[in-house]
Each structure stands twice: as structure tokens, then as C-alpha cells.
């Protein structure tokens, strides 16, 4: 078990590309932190620096109470699960799981016992003698997990471990990984580009974009109070509606509609989650619905609010038609952002 602290950790590649701008944050003991962002945002580089697979250009990385900048990956007391599982194809499941222990000169009988224990935990006991090629994707993923947990590391690192699985299996493995992490209580860092994984698995989410950390917070904070327009549009499917507005005389207006209050007179970006706009025949917003997306449990109405695109989320029981409808915004559901910087106000 360990706390992980990053102090101005930065990554610059030899060609001058700054993949990770100086970043500082701490991961608490036993916490499950998800690094999320679009591809190329630096989240994988961040993880690989923590793993020791990538050199840290400047700054300081602590795992537990050690500075590990120059410590070999094998000596950082970490375990990593890779996107393509990275199982050794010529070894049986048992050997795959036990390889790290064997390299640490642990006696064979202890290895066997630990492999057995891990296999039992992951329902792999009947596959111990098989080769990875004889396993399904989900089983391979479990073997990769087994290889990680068998070492009792103080830190788990996950590099998009579910992205090669089909949707159904992904949901199942998501729950399994989360449950396993809860049970073992091992500090974990999990990289993904899938915001659903981030929301469902994380204790805290770190949203990255262009090598910069945009926001660190609980899933609820990140979702309901996004720190920037980037976070607002990245987290959530469909994303938050971002509308051009203007504050004057203490009122924030989008077109003719009065939505919120703000003290300064200035242009603004107004963010409202699709589910925070409720159809209401007496509501103040007039929205022209042009397209209805049927999703079974709910529907998405796409339309315009005075020439600005807007999406509304409505429950399955609500009758919908295209054409003009009236809607209201739930109280306290409006986020305001600076037009220039995109930062939350």
C-alpha cells in the first residue's frame, strides 16, 4: 500500500515535444484514480513515468516514502496491466502469473501457492496449464490481472486494460476490476479514454488534455462542476450543452432567455447538461427539435435554441415530437465559463 506523489513531474521528448507539462498531485493510499483524456493527451506517458518505463524529464515522483525517479521498474513495487495483456505467449497461465515471482527468487512452492491463490480469486484455476492463445479475451485479461496481484504490489497501474474487449465483457470486467481493487485495497492508477470507465471506476478522476491536467476531482465533481469547457464536453455522453451567452445587469442571457445571474457584464459560455433541461409547457426556453434519438431507456432531442445547437435528455415516458417545444432549466444546474480561456467562473 502506498501513497503516490508527483511534484512538478514533466516529460519532454528528445525532439522537444512536451508530452506532459509540469504536473503535481497526490494519490492517497488505497485510492483508485483514473487518468482520462483524448488520445495524445499525455495520460499514458504519465502512467509510464509512474511505472518507470519512461524517464522523468524533471520533477519528483514518490511512491510510498521513496523518491523513485531513478528506480528500475522492477524495484518500484508496482504491477502493470497492459492494453494488449502482454502475456508471454510461450508460457502457460501458471508460468505467466508466476514469472515475476520466479525472477525475485521466491521458492517454487511459495510461487505455486501464490499462483493458486490468485487463480482462485480470478476463477482461473482450470486454465492454469493452458497457453494464452487458448484463452478468450476476458480470460487473458484475468491472467494479466493475476500477474499483477500475485506480487502483492503497493501500486497497480492499468493502461487501457479493457479497450480490446467487446462491450459486454468490458462492462463485466469493469465491475470485476473495481471489486478486486476494493477487496485488495491497493492504490491504483488507471488510464482510459473511455469516460464511462472513468466515471464508474474512479474514486477520483484526473482529466488531461494536451499534456495539461484540466481537473482533478471525484466523478461527481468532474461531471457536475467541470473546471473548463474541455472537461464539460469530454465527460458525459452526450456532452454538456455549451451556449454563447452574455451577462448584463446581473443576468445571464442566451439569446432572449434569462438563465442565470452573474455580477460582471461580459460575454460567457453557458454550460447545461442535457438532463438538466426539462420539457415544460410553461418553461421559458423555446427549443426547435429537429431530431429524436431513441435509446430505449431515454431519448435525446437534438434541436436549436435560437440558432444554437442544443441537446435535451428526456425520460422514456415523456411524449416527444419534433418541432418547437418549451423547456425549463433545473435550478443550480448552470455552469459558466470564460469565453477566452474556457475556464469555469
Amino acid at each position: 500500500m502506498a501513497q503516490v506523489t508527483l511534484n512538478n513531474v514533466r516529460k519532454v521528448y528528445p525532439n522537444g515535444f512536451e508530452a506532459v507539462k509540469p504536473a503535481s498531485f497526490a494519490i492517497n493510499d488505497g485510492e483508485f484514480v483514473v487518468l482520462v483524456g483524448p488520445s495524445g493527451c499525455g495520460k499514458s506517458t504519465m502512467l509510464r513515468m509512474i511505472a518507470g518505463l519512461e524517464d522523468i524529464s524533471s520533477g519528483e515522483l514518490n511512491i510510498g516514502d521513496r523518491v523513485v525517479n531513478d528506480v528500475d521498474p522492477a524495484d518500484r513495487d508496482i504491477a502493470m496491466v497492459f492494453q494488449n495483456y502482454a502475456l508471454y505467449p510461450h508460457m502457460t497461465v501458471a508460468k505467466n502469473i508466476g514469472y515475476g515471482l520466479k525472477n525475485r527468487k521466491i521458492p517454487a512452492d511459495q510461487i505455486a501457492a501464490k499462483v493458486q491463490e490468485a487463480a482462485t480469486m480470478l476463477n482461473l484455476t482450470e486454465y492454469l496449464d493452458r497457453k494464452p492463445s487458448q484463452l478468450s479475451g476476458g480470460q487473458r485479461q484475468r491472467v494479466a490481472m493475476g500477474r499483477a496481484i500475485v506480487r502483492d504490489p503497493s501500486l497497480f497501474l492499468f493502461d487501457e486494460p479493457l479497450s480490446n474487449l467487446d462491450a459486454k465483457l468490458r462492462n463485466q470486467m469493469r465491475i470485476e476490476i473495481k471489486a478486486l481493487q476494493r477487496r485488495l485495497g491497493v492504490t491504483s492508477v488507471y488510464v482510459t479514454h473511455d469516460q464511462v470507465e472513468a466515471m464508474t471506476m474512479a474514486d477520483r478522476i484526473i482529466v488531461m488534455n494536451g499534456g495539461v491536467i484540466e481537473q482533478i476531482g471525484t466523478p461527481s465533481e468532474v461531471y457536475h462542476s467541470p473546471a473548463s469547457t474541455f472537461v464539460a464536453s469530454f465527460m458525459g455522453a452526450p456532452p454538456m450543452n455549451l451556449l454563447n451567452g452574455h451577462a448584463a445587469g446581473g443576468r445571464v442571457r442566451v439569446g432572449d432567455h434569462d438563465l442565470h445571474h452573474h455580477d460582471q457584464d461580459r460575454p460567457l459560455t453557458v454550460g447545461i447538461r442535457p438532463e438538466d433541461i426539462v420539457p415544460d409547457t410553461t418553461g421559458p426556453l423555446q427549443i426547435n427539435v429537429s431530431l429524436i434519438e431513441e435509446l430505449g431507456a431515454h431519448r435525446l432531442l437534438h434541436g436549436t435554441l435560437q440558432d444554437q445547437a442544443i441537446t435535451i435528455h428526456v425520460g422514456k415516458d415523456h411524449p416527444v415530437t419534433t418541432g418547437p417545444i418549451y423547456a425549463a432549466v433545473k435550478p443550480n444546474a448552470v455552469s459558466l465559463f470564460d469565453v477566452e480561456s474556457g475556464m469555469r467562473l
Binding site: A51, L53, D72, P73, A74, I78, A79, M80, F82, Q83, N84, A86, L87, Y88, Y99, G100, N103, R104, R147
Partner: peptide, 21 residues
């Protein structure tokens, strides 16, 4: 795959072990 090399590094396999194993 590069990941195999990295997995081996994390598993504590040095250059000779990686080659042989």
C-alpha cells in the same frame, strides 16, 4: 510487441533473462 518487453521489465527480467526466458 513492445508491451511484452515492458511487462518483462516490470516482472524483473533483466537483459539476459529476457533474452533466455
Amino acid at each position: 510487441p513492445e508491451e511484452l518487453v515492458e511487462a518483462a521489465r516490470i516482472d524483473g527480467a533483466g537483459p539476459i533473462k529476457f533474452f533466455v526466458d
